[in-house]
Design a protein around this nucleic acid. Sequence first.
DNA 1: GCCCTTGCTTGACACCATGTCAATTGACAG
DNA 2: CTGTCAATTGACATGGTGTCAAGCAAGGGC
Lengths: 216, 216
Amino acid sequence: MSSNEPDTRTRILAASMKLLESAPTKLPRMSDIAKAAGISRQALYLHFDSRTDLLVETTRYQDHTNNADQKLMTHRNKIRGRDKLDAFVLAWGNYIPEIWGVARALVTLSATEPEAAAALDQRMADVRQGFEAAIKVIDSDGDLPPALNVTLATDLVAMLMSFRNWETLTQSMGWTQDCYVETMRAMAQAAVLGDMNALSTALTCTEHLDPSGHPA
Amino acid sequence: MSSNEPDTRTRILAASMKLLESAPTKLPRMSDIAKAAGISRQALYLHFDSRTDLLVETTRYQDHTNNADQKLMTHRNKIRGRDKLDAFVLAWGNYIPEIWGVARALVTLSATEPEAAAALDQRMADVRQGFEAAIKVIDSDGDLPPALNVTLATDLVAMLMSFRNWETLTQSMGWTQDCYVETMRAMAQAAVLGDMNALSTALTCTEHLDPSGHPA
DNA sequence: GCCCTTGCTTGACACCATGTCAATTGACAG
DNA sequence: CTGTCAATTGACATGGTGTCAAGCAAGGGC
């Protein structure tokens, strides 16, 4: 029976993840999560040290159930640095919406909880590393403009592709996910390769935005 | 005597501002602010409805004491759109560090308090408007690349110059304020004007970053 | 059939921060 | 002297996290 019914810890994590995904802007109370998992509030503390601990474990759980590693490794195939960058921008940019709810909760908690802040830093460092790998190859390809070095370029792209920027553009400013990805792709190429015609491709968005546009 | 001793409300606001500026990552409790203002905790509620209200008023107070309007209006002089953009990027980019502490608190609270979120949205909208003004002129100058429209370009630059990005680059990634401003200036020009050689100017940073660099 | 362990339940409680209320004080004005 | 205003004090409600102790139900070993 243990093969069919998932163990309690897993049920908690699944419930936590579901709650965070379904209402990204509200972070649930421990009692909410307990109810959703079908156990008592106190029982949560039999499996997790604290609210923060539970949340951090939820992010791990989510990455695991989503095959995050696999999804973010598509750039392995590519040979040229610019293709690697492109692939990673695409992969990460399209992964963000999947993790939005959970990541947002992590951001919120990290304002007060150092543990959460550490977990968030780690996650951002992981993403940064993906970009760095691509940019190193761009550099050895000789495609990196002389004005940039690897560190600077990586910082720039990592900033550009930050979770928060995705949130701003798609949630506050109403950009389509497609528009976001395409524009960020163009921006990354422009910034790191000095490739300006990349930005003409972003033309697909203009349609989406002109008429309806901003709710704010 | 009322001319020399500031009234209580002002003393509270000053104390609140000072606390937020001196420890940007910790948001003070009401009791901390009361103590700093030299009054009882309960007396705060004689002047402000709630913690959120007090914080929002603190941001206004800060903008007022800092002459924010004046500082952000330097681009009025400029005629060409590209010069206006440049001036506003410079002005806003250099204003951010002054308001960091208070703004950060607002961001933190806005996760749970709708009032704070509204205030934050307003502030972001104000900044956005500054960029939009410049970009409209760029457009009428005929300098806006055909792939962009005003809305899209404004969103892009507003995202680039967001408070959060400043925080990421200068606080997490260790960029100098100068490096930040110069790079953002170049990025903005590249994004909105298709002016790629702007990015070569950002070369000043490479020195700062290569040796010491990342704490993470 | 008995005991022991394991995982969970229930109820109670400490802690901490925000926000509220009532009674009181002290100063100043008319 | 009196009324008003601003602030003080102490007490309290609320809501959330985290802790603790006692009890209970199911299953395994023997």
